[in-house]
Design a protein around this nucleic acid. Sequence first.
RNA 1: GGGGAGAUACCAAAGUGGCCAACUGGGGUAGACUGUAAAUCUACUGUCGUACGACUUCGGAGGUUCGAAUCCUUCUCUCCCCA
Length: 376
Amino acid sequence: MEFELLHKDPASKARAGILRTDHSEIQTPVFMPVGTAGTVKGVHQRELEKDIDAPIILGNTYHLYLRPGLETLRGAGGLHGFMNWNRSILTDSGGYQVFSLAANRKLKPEGAWFSSHIDGSKHVFTPENIVDTQRIIGADIIMAFDECTPWPCDLKYASSSLELTHQWLDRGLKQFASTEPLYGHTQAFFPIVQGSVFKELRRASAEFIAEKGAEGNAIGGLSVGEPAEEMYAMLEVVNEVLPFDKPRYLMGVGTPVNILEAISLGVDMFDCVMPTRNGRNGMLFTREGIINIKNRKWMNDYSPIDEHGSSYVDMQYSRAYLRHLIISGEMLGAQIASMHNLAFYLWLVRRAFEEIKSGTFTAWKERILPALNTRL
RNA sequence: GGGGAGAUACCAAAGUGGCCAACUGGGGUAGACUGUAAAUCUACUGUCGUACGACUUCGGAGGUUCGAAUCCUUCUCUCCCCA
C-alpha cells in the first residue's frame, strides 16, 4: 500500500491524496461503505462499483470469523473472491464488538473472551489471532485489535484501557511482522489511537502509535455518544501528532457534518453504518438537508428522490414511491435508500477532494454545512 | 320458519360489578440510529390540557347498584346451523 498527498487546503488541515492498494486506487478523503458480513447491506457489489463507485469497503473480522468461518473464507481464496469484490477491502478487527457486545465478552490482558451473538458459543480473540484471521480474510488494510472504550468513561478506566490497547498493538505488530499475506496481494496494518475524551491520553496514544511507523493510522473510540465538539477536540490533538504523510482513518464516523469537520481537521478516511442503516430506517441525506421519508408530508410528493443526486435511483424514483416502499417494509425501499445515501456520502468526499484541490474547501464547507443539518 | 352465537376505540381482539379511558396485535403519527447482535428500537395514538387532572365512551333506550363495558328489560343489527 502507498499513500501520496496531493493537495493541502490553505485555510484548514484538510488534505487530499491518493491511496493505492493492490486492488484499487483510492482518492482521499474517502468514505468506505460498511459491509460487515461480506455485504454492504442491501446493495449489490455491481451497484457498489458501477453506480456508487466505492473504491473500498469494510468487512468485520468478528462477524466473518463467526460466519461463514475461516475455513470457508480460506477455501474461497479470501473475502475478495468470496464476495466477488475486486476493489479494496478494509477489515475492522472486532475491537468495536468489544464495545458493542460488552455484555457478551470478558476482557483480560491476554485477549477478549466472547460469546457469539449467533449461538452463544465461546471464542477468544487475541491481538495475534486477530491478525491471523485478517490474513485469512485477506483485506488490503487490516486493523489492530483494540478496546473501543464506552462513553462516558472515567480517566482511570480510559487510562488502563489505553494501556491494554497499546500492549495489544505491540503484540499485533509483532504477529503482523512475522506472518505473510496468503493470497498474493499486500496487506497494511493500521494501529488505532484510543484515550476516550482525554486530551493527555489521546496525545500520549498518538505519540505511542506514531513511533510505530505504520502505513496508516486510525483514530477509534469516538462518536460513541460524546458531544461532537469533544470529538473534534480529540482529532485536533491527535492529528498534531500522527504522521502527516500517512493516511488517518477516523473509525465509525459519521454524519455528513462530522465528516466535513473531520476532513478539515486532517482526517482522510471514514466509514459509518449511517448511510445504510439509517437509509433502511427511512432517513435520507441530501445536500439540501435530511429527509425522513416516512413522514406523511412526502406521501404525494412525486418529485425525484434527489434531483441533485448522483445515483441513478435519485432521478428514477419519486419520494412518494420510496416512502411507500419503506412504509410497506418492501426490500426495494431499503435498497434504494441505501444506494441514495451511499452515493451521497461518496459524492460528499469526492467533492471535498475537488475543493481541497482548488483551495476552496473551507469556504465550500462553511457554505454547505448549515443545509446538511436541516430537517426537510 | 326453528335453533344458536355475537355487537368493545381506525381494524382485529382481551376484559364479564370497583385495580378500566379499557390488555395485546395491527394500522396511524412522530422520534432515535455514528469501526452493524438493527429491513431495528422508542414514544404517543377518545376529547381538552405541558402536567396533576377534567370530561365523554364499550350497538340504542331504559333499569338494578354507593359503583356497570361487565347484571336485568327491551329494541336494532350481524353471523352460524337446521328447514
